Amino acid sequence: TLFEALYDYEARTEDDLSFHKGEKFQILNSSEGDWWEVRSLTTGETGYIPSPYLAPV
Rank of each mutant, 00 (worst) to 15 (best):
W36V: 07
F19T: 05
S51T: 07
K24N: 05
T46Q: 10
D15I: 11
S18N: 07
F19L: 04
P56Y: 05
K24E: 04
Y48E: 01
L17E: 00
T13W: 14
K24W: 12
Y48Q: 07
I27N: 01
S31T: 13
A11H: 06
T43I: 01
S30D: 14
P52A: 15
L28S: 01
G47C: 03
E23Y: 05
F19E: 00
L28K: 02
F3C: 05
N29A: 08
T42N: 09
Y7W: 12
Y9C: 05
T46H: 10
A5Q: 01
Y53I: 07
L28P: 00
P52N: 15
D16C: 12
E32C: 10
P50I: 05
S18T: 10
R39C: 07
E4D: 01
P52E: 15
P52H: 15
V38N: 00
G47P: 00
A5Y: 01
L41E: 09
L41H: 05
I49E: 00
T43F: 02
S40P: 02
D34S: 10
E14H: 12
E4Q: 09
E23W: 07
Y48M: 13
D8M: 02
S30Y: 12
S51W: 15
S40D: 04
K21T: 07
E4S: 06
I27Y: 08
G44P: 01
S51G: 11
S30H: 10
T42F: 09
V57E: 07
F19C: 09
D8Y: 04
L17P: 03
T43M: 01
E14N: 12
Y53S: 08
P56S: 08
D15L: 14
L2T: 09
D15F: 15
S51R: 12
P56I: 09
E4N: 03
T1E: 13
Y53R: 01
D16G: 15
S51C: 07
F19R: 00
L28D: 01
T46R: 10
E37W: 15
F3W: 15
I27D: 00
S40K: 14
W35K: 09
A11Q: 07
E4P: 00
V38M: 04
V57L: 10
R39W: 07
Y48P: 01
T43H: 03
G44N: 08
A55V: 14
S40F: 04
D15H: 15
T13N: 14
I27L: 13
E14M: 08
E4H: 07
T1Q: 14
E23D: 15
T13Q: 11
S30T: 12
W35V: 11
P52I: 15
E4G: 02
A5T: 05
D16H: 15
Y53M: 13
A11P: 05
E32G: 15
T1R: 10
E32Y: 12
L6R: 06
G47N: 01
R39H: 07
L6A: 05
E23R: 00
L2M: 09
T42W: 12
L41V: 10
S30M: 14
K21E: 05
L54M: 07
E4F: 12
N29M: 07
R12D: 09
E45P: 00
E45G: 08
L54D: 01
D8S: 08
T42K: 12
E37Q: 11
S18W: 04
F25W: 01
W35R: 14
W35C: 08
K24C: 07
F25L: 04
E14K: 10
F19Q: 00
W35T: 08
Y9V: 05
V57I: 12
